[in-house]
Simulated assay, not measured.
Amino acid sequence: MHIAVYLPLLLSVLAPIGARVLPERCEPRLATWLLTVSALVLAATSTLSLGLLAATGLLRIPLLAGLGHWSTLAAQQNDPAELSIALIAGLLLGGSVITAARMLWQRARSLAAAALEAACMPTTDGLVVVDDAVPEAFALPGLPGRVVVSTGMLHTLEEKERDILLAHERAHLAAHHYLFVALAQLGAAANPLVRPLANAVTYTIERWADEHAATATGDRTRVARTVGKAALAAHHSPARARIPRAALGILGVLGRRNPLSGAGPVPRRVAALLAPPLRRHPALMAATAAVLTAAAWSVADAAFDLHLLLEAVGI
C-alpha cells in the first residue's frame, strides 16, 4: 500500500491528455467508449483508493479497533500511511460519495422527466414539430424517444439539410448517447480530476452523430454546412427559457445555447467533417487499456496489502 494505493489518483491527472488526444485522433464512436470507460474506471479506482486509505485510519481508533479485535499499537507500527493522510482521504471519500449520489439522483430525475415528456408528445414516426420561430432541434430520451424540431429550424434548412438534421438526432436516440453522457458525468462527480473526460464525451457524441449523418446521406460537406448553418441560426436567435436537461441536439449537448460555450466545438466538428474520416487508433486503445489496467491492478494490490495489515494487527 506504500505506492500502489496512490496510483489511481496519480493516473487521474492524465485525464486532460486523454480528453484532448482521443477526440481528435480516434474515430468518434470508439473515442466515446474509451472516454466513458476511462472516466468510470478512474473514478471507481480512485474512490476505492480513498476508501483503503481511510480504512487504515479507522484501525487507530480504539473503539473501532476493539470491535474488530485489532491492536491500535500494532496498527501504528505497521501502517505505512500517516494518520493525517487517512483523515484527509476519509473526508475526500465522503465528499466524493455525496457528490456522486446527488448527481446520480439528479440525472435519474432528469431522464425520467424527459421520458415522461416524450411519452406525452403525440407522434407516429418519432418526430415532433413544435411551432416556434426559434431554430431548435434535439433528441429527447424516452421509451421510445422523440426528435423535436421547431418550425424555425425547418424554415432555416433546405430539404436535404433537414434529412441530415433528422439523421443526426436519430443517431443520438439509437446509440443511447444520453447514457454515455450520464455515466461520464457520474465519474466526474466522484472524481473531479476526470471531468475533462466527461466534457470530451459531450463533444464526441456529437461527432458520432455527425458521422452517422454523413454515412446516411453520403455527403460530408453538406453535413458540415448543415452543422454550421444550424449553429449560426441559433447564434442570432434568443435562447429558450427551458430545454430538457436530458436532451441532445445538433446545436450542442444538454440544450446549451450559449454561443461562447459552443464556439469551440462547432468549428472543430465542421473541420472534422471536411477532413477524411478518422479511423481506429490501436496505439491509443493500447495506451488507454494500459492506464486502466494499471489503475485496477494498483487497487487490487492495495486491497491485498490492507488484508495483510489486518492480519498483522489482529489480536
Rank of each mutant, 00 (worst) to 15 (best):
H168M: 00
R242C: 00
R102D: 13
V194S: 04
V149C: 14
A171K: 07
E117Q: 10
A167V: 06
N258I: 00
E169Y: 07
P16M: 14
A118Q: 03
D79N: 14
A112E: 13
A189P: 00
L9G: 09
I315K: 09
R256I: 09
V13T: 15
V194G: 02
H176E: 15
T124L: 08
V253L: 08
L73A: 15
L273H: 04
H69V: 08
V13A: 15
G95F: 06
L10V: 15
S96C: 06
T47G: 10
V223G: 02
A137R: 06
A283N: 11
D305E: 06
L53C: 05
L165D: 06
D210I: 09
L143H: 12
V313Q: 01
F180C: 11
Y6L: 12
S150N: 12
L50M: 15
N191S: 01
E211R: 13
A31K: 06
L284F: 07
R146Y: 03
R25V: 00
S150P: 02
A190Y: 09
R242F: 04
T47V: 14
P282L: 07
P16L: 13
P122R: 04
K160P: 09
A300N: 12
A118L: 01
H168K: 01
P277L: 11
R29K: 05
A216H: 13
L40G: 12
N258G: 01
A295G: 08
V130L: 14
L154P: 01
A184E: 05
V291K: 06
P80K: 04
T204N: 04
H168L: 04
A167H: 03
T215S: 12
E27I: 10
V97D: 10
A234F: 07
H2G: 00
A241L: 09
V299N: 10
T204Y: 08
L87D: 10
